[in-house]
Design a protein around this nucleic acid. Structure first.
Lengths: 97, 97
DNA sequence: CCAGTATTTAATTGTTTAATTAATTTAAAT
DNA sequence: ATTTAAATTAATTAAACAATTAAATACTGG
């Protein structure tokens, strides 16, 4: 692996490595969610969710669409979906494969 | 995914999210390496490598064996191997799968 | 025992990150 | 136009992280 790849992947992992951000990504696996929706699932403030979302956006992981004064967030990069699938398979099951 | 899983995975990703530590893990994919070996590959000091190794050990990612006054480090957890394989496949190739 | 090498530990210092709070923007509804 | 709700932004403060340097430990060989 080249050093640029390593730097890029390290940055990605860093973005994903906060419990709230990882949880947001897990929530967004299935569906779109607004900031308010997300705040209902994680135990923190609205502003805090918004800040974490902005970090995820800057990394290019999620994008959003605006409707009325709601903002619907979704996972942008299909590779992130696959990555989370792998994490779940490796660390959340007892299966042999 | 349960919150304990999320916390555990977030902690793992955090440990892996430093460029030097990620590079160390990539180097250890194939072979065992001493601190000195690793310092030859990453541009930093001996003490710094040792500190990063200790973080990786505390996370349970790598283990080591002692021989003379060398310490040979290796990846402990086969799931880490698979995870890095996945990262490489997703973010270091142009292939469609 | 002493010298030399490998590694770890400790202490310091600067940087980054994260949560909280308050203020601001944007859009909708009355 | 004013109010209300959703989301963002900004400012503050505390905590965590990381690199450097120096000191300490562990082990080997003469």
């Amino acid at each position: 692996m080249h050093n640029e790849h390593i730097a890029a992947i390290a940055a990605l992992l860093k973005t994903m490595s906060h419990p709230i951000r990882l949880k947001i990504l897990c929530l967004l696996l299935d569906r779109e969610m607004t900031v308010g929706d997300i705040r209902g699932e994680v135990k923190t403030t609205n502003a805090n969710v918004s800040q974490h979302l902005s970090i995820l956006r800057n990394q290019g992981i999620i994008s959003f669409r605006k409707e009325a004064n709601f903002i619907y967030n979704r996972i942008n990069d299909p590779r992130i979906l696959q990555l989370i699938q792998t994490l779940r398979k490796l660390f959340c099951t007892n299966s042999a494969n």
